[in-house]
């Protein structure tokens, strides 16, 4: 492939906007994904993305701004999940299943009844770089800055409530507020990235970079920059590959993330076995 071919997609404005949003989204999902993975909430990204889809459909039908409607919907869904899960009669997985699938079903029903269903649904479900606007770049950048600020200022509270919520509560950390803020950040992230990545695949971007990063380090603070780095790089490279291979951008990004995970898993597994063997455990 000639060098100038590599830069060919950058001649298109839609691609420039798409790759900026995707790279920031990758870093943002990688950052929040650390908490998703360590809290054992991997299914929540999947669930919330479905819930936000319901909000997006309702916004379109009612005729209000997509970001406002779907954002409020997503945050309410996150809070509902946290509340239902805390009652302990149902686990978090059941709470996510109930709240988000109902929301998703409502979204589908609304779009079937009132919307130009198939095209819009496909765009929301699988994402599209063609529809990315400058407003999307602004929105994803603002959410990324906000998420970073929250994580820096609340670093200790987030770490404590993730590691040991009961003792954090006893030590004066309002664990419920921390959880609601985290779920709200997740909802906002899904909201501003769903147009590019799509609701069905965004959960992978919340889980795979963080899971791969977890195998490279035992340090929480290092995890918070390795995971966003993996997310950003795979999104950037995935976008370029998708143009040249003529494949879906979101599918290419997720496949690239999966490849990174497999490589890290294999290398980390071999390294651990060698370490154990050197200690005489095997």
């Amino acid at each position: 492939m000639l060098a100038f071919d590599l830069f060919e997609p950058y001649g298109f404005e839609f691609f420039q906007r798409g790759i900026i949003v995707a790279t920031i989204a990758g870093a943002l999902c990688g950052l929040l994904g650390v908490f998703v993975v360590l809290r054992g909430m991997s299914y929540i990204g999947h669930g919330l993305s479905h819930a936000v889809f319901g909000g997006a459909a309702a916004s379109a039908v009612i005729g209000i701004n997509f970001f406002i409607g779907a954002g409020i919907w997503g945050i309410i869904s996150g809070v509902l999940i946290a509340r239902v899960a805390r009652r302990r009669v149902l686990g978090a997985d059941a709470a996510i299943g109930v709240v988000t699938t109902a929301s998703f079903a409502l979204g589908l029903a609304l779009m079937n009844r009132y919307g130009q269903a198939s095209k819009s649904i496909e765009a929301v479900l699988f994402g599209s770089v063609l529809g990315v606007k400058v407003a999307d770049i602004v929105a994803v950048s603002l959410v990324a800055i906000f998420a970073l600020a929250v994580i820096v200022v609340w670093y200790r509270k987030l770490l404590f409530s993730t590691f040991d919520p009961d003792v954090a509560q006893v030590s004066g950390v309002n664990v419920s507020v921390v959880e609601v803020v985290l779920l709200s950040l997740l909802s906002l992230t899904i909201l501003v990235t769903m147009r590019v990545i799509g609701t069905l695949l965004i959960s992978a971007l919340l889980v795979i970079p963080a899971a791969a990063a977890r195998m490279t380090t035992n340090s929480f603070s290092k995890l918070l920059w390795i995971s966003p780095l993996i997310g950003a790089i795979t999104c950037f490279v995935g976008m370029n590959l998708s143009y040249h291979l003529d494949t879906s951008a979101s599918a290419t990004i997720i496949l690239l993330d999966a490849l990174v995970f497999i490589v890290v898993y294999t290398v980390a597994g071999t390294r651990n076995r060698m370490k154990m063997a050197s200690l005489g455990h095997v």
Binding site: R156, K157, F163, T217, F220, L223
Partner: peptide, 19 residues
Amino acid sequence: YFPVTVEEVIVMTRSKSTW
């Protein structure tokens, strides 16, 4: 298996008093 050191675990109790 949580990625924290002993030092990080111990200072967690100061989460409320400093950002």
